[in-house]
């Protein structure tokens, strides 16, 4: 049996400044999530999962449609 298991892509989390208002740890980072209400760019605590901010992202998150960039006028 010849099988190759490729390692897949990862979501990179950008470190964010400050301490978590929930637990006080300095483990905040910024990354996109899909949840109730669609896609958000969040700043979140890695220790307690408290969201410091949740800003709505594009409707389709990281997807670029085949028709993306189409300019009609």
């Amino acid at each position: 049996m010849h099988t190759d298991v490729n390692p897949g892509p990862r979501v990179e989390r950008q470190p964010a400044d400050g301490a978590c208002p929930g637990c006080g740890k300095a483990e905040l980072s910024r990354y996109p999530v899909l949840s109730e209400g669609g896609w958000y760019q969040v700043v979140k605590c890695g220790a307690c999962l408290h969201s410091v901010s949740r800003k709505p992202w594009g409707l389709l998150g990281p997807i670029t449609l085949t028709s993306h960039g189409l300019v009609l006028d």
């Binding site: 892509p9 979501v11 990354y31 996109p32 999530v33 899909l34 949840s35 979140k44 997807i63």
Partner: peptide, 8 residues
């Protein structure tokens, strides 16, 4: 529930 999804 937050889901973290790499595209592709």
């Amino acid at each position: 529930i937050d889901i973290v999804i790499p595209p592709g």
